[in-house]
Design a protein around this nucleic acid. Structure first.
Lengths: 215, 215
DNA sequence: CAAGATTCCGAACAGCCGTTCTAATGGGTG
DNA sequence: CACCCATTAGAACGGCTGTTCGGAATCTTG
């Protein structure tokens, strides 16, 4: 099995996890094809057969949207099972602001100050955390100075997601993620800053919400 | 609404929750029909429309297996299981989305649909309400399509505030307010739209917060 | 290079799915 | 009883979905 195979299959697993998380229902074969950049549903179907034989996914033959990750598949992606069990009927949850992030630079963690904000349930999970935006580095994503962004911890991200990514040993940054052939582009949401390219990035979280207080 | 209606709708909600939990994907309309004992998918479809209008479920029109319970729908099921309603010790309050506002046009009030969202205390007051943004009319104020804006009822506004203003007898609009000599300028937060001038405007509320759910 | 295997595409098909429309049923109200 | 309205059934439709098949393209291997 070549390295390219691994990448493709891993991306299909990610697409299943990501599609399920985003819409609440697993994706169809064609939706997976779109997510991973394949043109034919038959190609995805072939990979799904392989993945099922390897015990990474399960399907109900003929049933739409019946693909789901097994425990082995989830562990391969290092998905925390606890995340999916947070269906508490609470309308809001208190999240901690763990730091602030400025243009391009690393995230400065709050150490002593402990600020927390109530975040609506519909734009967060129990293990989410908050970052406070400094400057106009995210202005093209309609995120302004002083906004709070809700970050959901996740190892997987879809193309175009704004993610918290670890790019160097000690550098964590907030940028928009795009997959290109053989590399990953981290695009600042501000034309004044240049994109950065990496062979691979370590995604730590995905932006799922924005809070802004005016005045 | 008779008691029998409540039972049928509750059973449909249970079927959605049960089907989702058992197979990992929400049930189809026909699967719900089987679960609750209905013979025609159209009957279920009719109930689903009602449930969505009541804010208990959400759907993506035309997409298979896209039905899912909202926070209110889940809490309704829990209440039926004899769990008392809890008062939130959170620094948040539940506000009602009263309508949506598109580019320059008037605010379309929601009449039947009653959607509500938990809003952090620090960006709202008890009498605040929500509007859902349609289109890119507020893009220059970093407010995007689909965002919720928190409106605090107020007769007065400061220069540069984004306000809900009554400009005609039956027209209410959301724009940025600037006072000029002898007149008031209502400036859309989008360069594609021209400002409007009035000798005086009737301010009904001021924008105090923005909520955005990504994905 | 030759041959085989792997991967992917495009097309096609049968079945499933959401939705709409019409009509039948039945309960409630005057 | 006559009437209205909610509920359900039934049929039909157009689109979506999983699946299969043939063949092209690409990679691997000897």
């Amino acid at each position: 099995m070549t390295k390219h195979d691994q990448d493709r299959k891993t991306r299909i697993l990610q697409a299943i996890a990501e599609g399920s998380r985003r819409s609440g229902t697993p994706p169809t074969v064609r939706e997976i094809a779109d997510l991973v950049g394949l043109a034919a549903p038959s190609a995805v179907h072939h990979h799904l057969e392989t993945l099922e034989r390897e015990g990474l996914i399960q399907r109900d033959s003929g049933l739409s949207r019946s693909v789901r990750l097994t425990a082995r598949g989830r562990s391969l992606l290092e998905i925390d099972d606890a995340v999916e069990t947070t269906n508490l009927p609470m309308a809001a949850r208190e999240l901690v602001v763990v730091g602030q992030i400025a243009a391009g630079g690393p995230i400065e963690a709050y150490e002593e100050r402990s600020e927390s904000v109530a975040v609506p349930e519909f734009m967060s999970t129990a293990d989410s955390y908050l970052l406070k935006i400094r400057g106009d580095s995210m202005i093209d994503a309609q995120i302004a100075d002083g906004d709070y962004v809700v970050i959901k911890p996740s190892k997987v991200a879809a193309d175009g997601d704004i993610v918290v990514a670890q790019v160097e040993e000690n550098e964590v940054t907030l940028k928009q993620l795009f997959r290109e052939s053989g590399r990953v582009r981290l695009q600042p949401a501000n034309k004044a800053y240049a994109p950065m390219y990496y062979p691979t990035v370590n995604v730590q979280g995905v932006l799922v919400g924005v809070l802004r207080r005016v005045h």
